[in-house]
Nucleic acid binder design. Sequence first.
DNA 1: CAATTGGCATACGTGGCGTATGTCATGAGG
DNA 2: CCTCATGACATACGCCACGTATGCCAATTG
Lengths: 223, 223
Amino acid sequence: MMVAAGRRAMMMEETRAKLIRAARKAFAAKGYATASMDELTAEAGLTRGALYHNFGDKKGLLQAVIDQIDAEMVERARAARDQADDPWLAFLAECVAYIEMALEPEIQRILLLDGPAVLGDPSQWPGQNACLRTTTQTIRTLIDAGRVRPVDAEAAARLVNGAALNAALWIAASDDPRAVLGRAVEAFRCLAGGLLRPGDEPTIPERDGGGYRQADPGGKVGH
Amino acid sequence: MMVAAGRRAMMMEETRAKLIRAARKAFAAKGYATASMDELTAEAGLTRGALYHNFGDKKGLLQAVIDQIDAEMVERARAARDQADDPWLAFLAECVAYIEMALEPEIQRILLLDGPAVLGDPSQWPGQNACLRTTTQTIRTLIDAGRVRPVDAEAAARLVNGAALNAALWIAASDDPRAVLGRAVEAFRCLAGGLLRPGDEPTIPERDGGGYRQADPGGKVGH
DNA sequence: CAATTGGCATACGTGGCGTATGTCATGAGG
DNA sequence: CCTCATGACATACGCCACGTATGCCAATTG
C-alpha cells in the first residue's frame, strides 16, 4: 500500500517537471509578463488547475523555474572552476563561466531580467541563490589562503556577480557578441585583479589581444 | 497668432509633466506591472486618453519616466565628481554616488528592476542612458591621463556600473542598509583599484574601519 | 463665420489571472 | 465488498486592466 503511494508522488513530480519545462520555454521566449498560463499549461498537456495546485500562483511557478536554473548554473560553474588548478585562476574561470552562461537567452531573460523584477532582490529568494553563495565561499577561501585582500567576502561576491551579470547583458544586446565577450572578459580580469594582494599580480598572465580560454566553443550566443 | 500657438504647447508639456510625476510615484510604490493606468491618470487629474495621446502606451510612459530619472542621476553624479580634485578620486566619488542613489526606492524599482525587464538592456534605450556614457568618458579620460590601465573603456564602465548596481540592490534589501553600504563601498574601492596602473595604488588611502566620505548624511535610505 | 485640426474624455472589446466548484481515481475502514 | 474521505486535476466564473475606437470641445485658419 505504501509502495503504491509512491505512484502518486511520482506522477506529481512528473507533472511539476512538465510544467516547469513548458514554463522555461515560454518565459524565455515571451518574457514572464507576456507568457500566458493557458498556453503554458496547454503545451504541457495540462490546464491551469494543475498549475495553481502545484505552484500556488504564477510567481510560484517562476520561483520554481529559477530554482532549477540556479542549480544548473552552480553545477556548470563548479565544473569550470575545477578545470583550473590555481585557486585564483579557478575563481576567474568561475566568473567567466557565469558571464558566458548569461549569454543564453533563457538565463538572461528569466534569471537576470524578469526574476529580480518580479521576485525582488535575488539574495532574498527562497532558493537562496546558490550562485552567489558559492562565489562568496570561493572568495573567502582565497582570502584565507592569503591570495586576496581581506575584504568582505559577501560584498566582493555581490560586486563581482553584478559586474559579470551586467557584462552579459551588454554582450547579448550587442551586434557582435563574440567580439564583445572578449572585451568584457579582458576588462573583467583587470577589474578582478583589484582584489589580489599586492605582489600577487604575476598570477594573471598578461595576454595580448584579449584572448582567453573558451569554455563553450559551439555556444548558442546568436540564438 | 503664433504667440498663442505656444499656449497649447505649454499646456501639452504641463500635462506630460503631471503624468510623469504621477507615474514616478505609482511605479515606485507599486511596481510597473501592478500600477494601474486608471489610478495613475486619476491622481494626475486626467484620464487614460491623455496618456495614450502623449506617450502611445504604458511602455512609452515608463520610457519617459526613465529618461527623466536618468538625466537627474547624471547631474547628481557630476556634482559628486566635481567635489574631488584628483581624477581617480573623482571617479570613485561618481561611482559611490551611483551606489547611494540606487538606494532610493524610486530609482531602484523603476530604473534597476522594472526598466530592464520591460524595455530590455539599458544600453539600447532611446534615451541612450547618459549614466553609462558619462562613466565611460570618465574612464577614458583616466586612461588618457595614464592613471588606469589601457582597457576597453566601455567594457570597464559596464562592469563598474553593474557592480555598483548590484551593490545597491543588496544594500537596500538588507536589514541595516547603512552598515552594508560601508562594506560595499570598501569592497568597491578595492575592486576598482584593479583598473589602476601598477604603482598608482598610493592614491587610494588605505583607511581602516571601512570609513568613507559620506555624501548624503541625511539620506533617505531607510525609507 | 464656417471648417478643420488637435488635445483629451468616454465607451467598448479582449485577454488573462485568480478562485470557486466539480469530477475521477486512489487508499482507508468497517 | 462496499462506502467514504482525500487529493490531483479540470472546468466555469468574475474581475481587472490594457488598448482602441469614437465623441466632444476649444483653438486656429481662411
